[in-house]
């Protein structure tokens, strides 16, 4: 079991909005939880944005892609930890995903790839692929379509911590 505490992660002046843990064995069986969690979180943190509906719609879309990525990459038992923070117009999503070395490499490598100069073309290639959808699509989408800033850090050999900074609504307080 992984037990990395969110409190130990640096917050850079971000204000915590919402946090939850989920046993990965629960998530493993329930694809629909990706939809439930993204809709719930988006609704909970959108009320004080200038346009709550538009914000919630876009945030739900981005969160769902993240949760689906986690669903498709988790292999290890443990606690999946999710935290959402806010500083001005920036929403920070921090996720600790229990996983082995291979899955850690997936996150670390994909986060590197999205910084490549050809990442936009790669995203479109993945989006319109005739093959089975590549599981990197969600992270590429956030980086290219939503211009999210992302980082991934391996936590020993048991988990990965993914941090995503999103600006959905310019000029939000």
């Amino acid at each position: 079991m992984t037990d990395f505490q969110m409190d130990s992660l640096p917050d850079d002046g971000f204000r915590p909005l919402l946090e939850f843990d989920l046993d990965t064995t629960v998530l493993n069986d329930q694809w629909v939880y990706c939809d439930f969690m993204s809709s719930f979180v988006a609704n909970m943190v959108s009320h004080n944005r200038a346009d709550p509906f538009m914000f919630s719609n876009l945030l739900s879309a981005t969160l769902n892609e993240l949760f689906e990525t986690v669903y498709r990459t988790r292999k290890e038992a443990g606690q999946f930890r999710f935290r959402m923070l806010r500083k001005g117009s920036v929403d920070r999503i921090t996720m600790v995903v229990p996983c082995g070395r291979d899955e850690q490499q997936f996150y670390l490598k994909t986060v590197e790839e999205i910084r490549d100069p050809g990442a936009s073309d790669k995203y479109l290639e993945l989006l319109f692929s005739d093959d089975e959808l590549d599981r990197r699509i969600g992270l590429f989408e956030l980086a290219i379509s939503y211009k999210a800033q992302m980082s991934a850090v391996a936590l020993e050999d048991k988990a990965v911590c993914l941090t995503v900074d999103l600006v959905i609504e310019q000029g939000a307080d």
């Binding site: 719609n57 989006l127 319109f128 692929s129």
Partner: peptide, 17 residues
């Protein structure tokens, strides 16, 4: 169509293409 994930969008786009 309030939401669509990439799986669904890819399916729709493939049919239209």
């Amino acid at each position: 169509l309030l939401q669509s994930n990439n799986v669904a969008f890819n399916g729709l786009a493939s049919v239209l293409m």
